[in-house]
Design a protein around this nucleic acid. Structure first.
Length: 267
DNA sequence: ATGCCCGGAACGTCCGGA
């Protein structure tokens, strides 16, 4: 089972790229962020024709998250539990193919001296609470998306320059660690502990993509059941190299079927 | 010190239909 996440920075502009990606990579589940479109403008017909069901929480201008899946999507939840008055469309969760999946667009938090930074941190606190509740259910789940957190200096092209950025600040990193320490598995780093320069985002300004000035801020966090099934996790740079690219590129992981090897142990 | 780049909204302009 292949699960991917991609911040598309406008589903309207990026639809051709998304359809190409669905055809080329054929993920079972694709988590999307930054739709920048209301529900009614979401291209569910085109995506349906490509063989995918859609769960969407859109918003005008900003934010917007969706889950695409080859299998039906059930029990769709929009927003974090207890966050019913939250107007920002940053979280959607559903059941598909026997697992729970969430598409997350975590607040950026910049500038750190304004109200956006405490909003980010409290949003992370609520996500941690919800992840703890999901772990209590003992059911397999994936929390994937644009976390807007570089977990470590190895995930930033210029750590010194980003030391005081909301994506790298210790308050953001400590909450990301607290989430992982619940215990979840951050799929890419689990399989590539020493890899540097493995970014998922390169800004539009100053030729960042050409210069390799990137950040790794898009993550797939797996529950213990699914961590046991993790066989591969990669960042697909091809979509970022295209004309009219999103500033993010897809991150995907492959989970084995989950069938246990019951071969008897032999001396 | 500031913009760099991009997308959407708002707006302005153009176009089609009445």
């Amino acid at each position: 089972m292949k699960i991917a996440t991609w911040n598309v920075n406008s589903i309207t502009v990026r639809l051709p790229h998304v359809l190409d990606y669905l055809r080329a990579a054929s993920p079972d589940v694709l988590l999307l962020q930054e739709l920048k479109a209301v529900d009614e403008a979401f291209p569910d017909t085109e995506i349906g024709d490509a063989g995918y069901n859609c769960a969407v929480w859109g918003q005008r201008t900003y934010n917007g998250v969706a889950i695409l899946s080859k299998t039906p999507l059930d029990d769709i939840q929009r927003g974090l539990p207890g966050d019913e008055d939250e107007p920002q469309a940053r979280y959607i969760e559903a059941e598909t193919n026997g697992i729970r999946v969430a598409s997350i667009y975590l607040p950026n938090g910049n500038p750190v001296d304004g109200p956006k930074f405490p909003y980010k941190l409290s949003w992370m606190d609520r996500l941690i609470d919800h992840a703890a509740a999901l772990l209590e259910t003992d059911s397999p789940f994936v929390l994937g998306g644009d976390y807007n957190v570089c977990p470590a200096d190895a995930d930033v092209y210029d750590p010194a320059d980003f030391a005081d950025d909301a994506l790298c600040r210790p308050e953001s990193r400590s909450r990301f660690r607290a989430l992982v320490n619940l215990v979840l598995t951050e799929a890419f780093r689990a399989l590539h502990p020493d890899e540097t320069g493995a970014y998922s985002y390169w800004g539009y300004q100053g030729g960042a993509w050409r210069k390799g000035h990137g950040l790794r801020i898009d993550h797939l966090l797996l529950s213990p059941h699914l961590a046991d099934r993790l066989v591969e996790c990669e960042i697909d740079r091809e979509p970022r190299a295209r004309e009219k690219a999103s500033d993010h590129t897809p991150v995907w992981c492959e989970l084995s079927s989950g069938e246990r090897d019951d071969t008897p142990w032999q001396v």
